[in-house]
């Protein structure tokens, strides 16, 4: 009798502990800077996290996509070009599975930046999206000048990996998926050609979404 009640007690405390443990949170990638500011006459140290710089690009339906259009969504960004024979088809295939999972969810968006603006005009991007089975703006294929896309990749999405200058093909063609939160902070980076890493991203997206829906 005594033993079994102890047993039950310890089991239930285990359960309670499990319930109380903090939910998993994704790290915030990139550089951070402590800043001092004054709140109610007291000096406190706040941290400023690196964010994706402002941008404005046109998508496959000639709609403008900029920081503002993304303020209520987390999103996945990547870099590709439609005529790419190497890693892009696999990346698209992998991203397609994630897109299917969140299809119709206004809190989740996908941005694929072309790095070949000369060839990938709006009609070419439109056709690519159609053939992939992508409708609407949830997954936008973005056209911008080569310079602006390169700079955005270098100073925004890929800057978390400054020490890693040796990505073959350069920053903007690294095959990475970058997970960005509603405050434009990078919360994850995944090899878009690797099924397992993409599956991890899909799980992490649920974790990130739960930050905005505390129980």
């Amino acid at each position: 009798m005594k033993i079994s009640s102890i047993f039950i007690l310890s089991i239930s405390s285990l359960f309670i502990l499990a319930c109380n443990s903090e939910p998993r949170k994704l790290p915030i990638l990139g550089s951070r800077e402590p800043v001092e500011k004054t709140v109610d006459g007291k000096t406190v140290v706040d941290t400023i996290y690196q964010t994706i710089p402002a941008f404005s690009f046109m998508n496959q339906d000639s709609a403008i996509i900029n920081n503002d259009s993304l303020k209520n969504s987390i999103y996945v960004a990547d870099f590709f070009f439609t005529s790419c024979p190497s890693i892009c088809p696999i990346m698209s295939k992998n991203l397609l599975t994630v897109y299917e999972k969140y299809k119709g969810n206004p809190e989740v968006r996908f941005l694929s930046h072309t790095i070949d603006p000369k060839y990938d005009t709006i009609p070419v991007l439109k056709k690519y999206a159609d053939k992939l089975g992508v409708k609407g703006t949830q997954w936008s294929f973005l056209l911008g000048s080569k310079d602006s896309v390169y700079l955005l990749a270098k100073n925004g999405y890929m800057s978390y990996s400054k020490e890693n200058d040796s990505i073959p093909g350069g920053y903007e063609h690294s095959g990475y998926f970058l997970l960005v939160d509603k405050d434009k902070r990078i919360r994850g980076a995944y090899d878009g050609t690797d099924k397992d890493q993409v599956a991890q991203m899909s799980k992490d997206m649920d974790v990130l979404l739960s930050e905005y829906h505390p129980k």
Binding site: P85, S86, I87, P89, I90, K93, K131, G133
Partner: peptide, 15 residues
Amino acid sequence: QNCHMDDGKGLAGLI
């Protein structure tokens, strides 16, 4: 394999 995939299933309406 990059294009036609390891299972030969290709990519949606593209490949």
